[in-house]
Every structure is written in C-alpha cells, then in structure tokens.
Amino acid sequence: MRMIIVGGGVLGTMHAWQAVRRGHEVVHLEREAEARGASVRNFGLVWVSGRAAGPELSTALRARELWERIGAEVPGVGFRGNGSLTVCRTPQEVAVAQAAAAAPDAAARGFTLLGRDEARALNPALRGEFEAALWCERDGAVESRVALPALRAALAATGAYQWLPGREVRALTDSGVRDDHGTVHTGDQVVLTTGAALSGLVRELVPDLPVRRVWLQMAQTAPLGEPLTTSVADADSFRYYPAFRGPELNALTVAQPQPPVAAEHAMQLLMVQRLDGGLTIGDTHAYAEPFPFDQVEEPYEHLIEVASALLGRPLPAIRRRWHGVYAQCLDPAAVAHRQQVTGNAVLVTGPGGRGMTCSPAIAEQTAEELSW
C-alpha cells in the first residue's frame, strides 16, 4: 500500500517505520520544518517502571524490546538500556519501594530494592544521603533531539519513504489528503498522528475527542563531568505513576506531603544524562488551559535543590530551559486513543507522557489492527 502519515513526531515516525518494514510506501507530512513538539522536548526515557499493570505495562515492555532492536539497527537514535534508580530518603518512601519490589509483576519490570551502598555501586554519581533505591533494569533512554532525523535517514535509505516537512494537512479527500500548498497526496491509508495539535482538522473530524493537553517545564544542564550511569528519579515520582498505588503510597501522601512548590506544580524529579554529558531534568504538570506563555522560576529552583541533594554536589549550571505540551488520553485503560475517522483514515493520539516510551508498540498495534 501507499501510506500517508500526518505528523512528524515520534508516534508518526514509528508508524512510518512499521509501514516501511511491512513493505509499504510512505509519504510523511509535517507542518513544521522539523518536529518541534513533545517528541523532542522530553527526557528520552523508555520508562517501564511506573506503568500500570495490564495493557499499559505490556505495551511498554514490548516497546522496550522494539527500541532495543531499532537502536541496534539505527545507532543514531542513541538507545541504551541504562535502567533507572528511584531514590528513597525516608522510611515511608522505602515502604513504597518495598511494596513495588514485592509485587507479582516486579520481575517483569526488573525491580530490585537496593541498599544505599548497592545503589552507589551501580551509580557512583549518587553521593547524597538516602536510605535505599528501587532499581528498574528494564528502563532505558534514547536521544530525543536526534532520534527522529536518524530514523528518517534510515527510512529514506530504503527508497520507500518520502519526508515532506512544511506541509500542514487541511483536509481529507476521497483518495488521501490536501495540504496548505494545495497539493493532494494520494494513498490507500491515512494515519493522523498530530500530537497536541487538536484544533483545526482534528477538531472538525472528532469534535468530542477524549484527549486533554498537559503543559510541563524542563531543563538541561552543562555536562556533569562524570557518568550518570542510570536514569534517576526521586520518590515524588511514586505519586504520579500508577504502578506504585496502594496502601504504602497512601500512607506516604499523608505522612509526607510534598513541598508547596512541588505540590502546586505537580512535580517529580526525573534526571537522565545526555550523550554530551549534560543532564535533562524535570518536570512539572499543568492540566487547566489556557496554559501560561511564560515559565516560572520556582519549579526550577526546586529541581536544582533536589537533584543537588541526590548527587551530593551542586548541579551543573542550567544551559537550556523549555516548556512543552503533550496530548493525554482521558481513558485510564487506554494507552492511546485510536479512532477511525473516515473509511481510509485513522487518528492515533493521546499517549500522554508515555509517547517516547510506548510509540514503537503503539504503531505496531495500529499496523496489526488495520492488517497492514
């Protein structure tokens, strides 16, 4: 078949990857000169550890397998299976980690509860004071700023892929799509992966789309000067990932409220080292639109304080700050929202903060459901 993929983010690119791998031709349209949304404004984490039991965890585990395969085939995506440590500094936090490490699916996630010395042996950069850490062997990372160009180059080398940036799709036609240059692109199947761009054509096609947008702030530092051998989270991440729900987490939230800034901005610390040695740190969450056009400084101050405490040294200077918006499906049982909008067009959106993690498997599921 001839496939038309609309949206150049990681979800669209993975649908193109699946289509080409299954023997189809792909025309890939993107409204910007380069993807600039959540796909490049994230940690690059392939985050298995916190996923909800059931379809979400299964999707994340399958995506982790696919990322490893893709990384071996396309080294430019920067995949590494570095795992993660969620660092616990209080007995209440340790209790949540203990419960997770004892859960029936702990082995599938690669969970092991480590003492402080064991965690430091795994990641010597963690010189701060803490009691224990939850090790997740299955977590990984990619380089989000360079992964998409690397994947497109590999697809283009097959001769079955055409990348057309600077083309905003305005309408679906009987045979494909029409862009804002007036060009009609014909094909057998259209896949709309427009990310957080939920107005315009998407709103016309699905006025009551069960997807919301989420706004966040992140930053990147100067090089750390030493390896951060694993990705790192603080125990506030327990509050935001469904895998950790239970009586231990309930007790933590009562006995140990978040600091006011962290609570106001729905914060956790996630920290991953880039290939250049810098650290990506974040993040905040805001759910009520309209979102601010400016960034506030207090969340960054909180992130710097927590990260410095875990490292036992001052965090390197922040060199880049940014905000981003992603689309999140409102159905808690769905990993993404997939909907047929016309006879030959399907909309796939709303993976939320799971986009980078789960996109290879989401695209595979689309291909299998549509019998590509």
Rank of each mutant, 00 (worst) to 15 (best):
E298F: 03
L113R: 06
A154E: 09
L134N: 08
H285D: 14
E73G: 15
A263M: 00
L216V: 11
D188R: 06
A150N: 05
R64W: 05
V184W: 13
M1W: 06
S308Y: 05
T253A: 09
E298Y: 12
P75S: 09
A107E: 09
D188V: 01
H337Q: 11
R21D: 15
F111L: 05
T59S: 04
H265W: 15
R89Y: 00
P351L: 04
G182A: 14
A38F: 10
E34V: 14
E129T: 09
L252P: 00
N344D: 15
V272T: 09
G159E: 08
M356S: 10
F244Y: 15
L269Q: 07
R62L: 10
T173I: 12
E364W: 03
P260Y: 13
I318C: 00
R64M: 02
T284C: 08
P259D: 15
S49V: 13
I281A: 02
A363S: 06
R127K: 10
P223R: 05
M1C: 14
N42L: 10
Q295E: 04
P210N: 00
V325F: 15
R31P: 04
G277H: 01
D276C: 02
P351A: 10
G278N: 04
R213G: 11
L228C: 07
A266E: 14
L148N: 02
C136W: 04
A53M: 01
F244V: 07
T349M: 07
R170K: 11
S371W: 12
A33C: 02
E168Q: 12
A243I: 00
A38L: 08
A107V: 13
E93V: 05
Y300R: 10
G71S: 09
R69T: 06
A154W: 07
A154Y: 09
A263S: 09
F43P: 11
T221H: 12
R109T: 06
V296Q: 14
T221E: 04
V296G: 03
A307E: 07
I304A: 06
L303T: 06
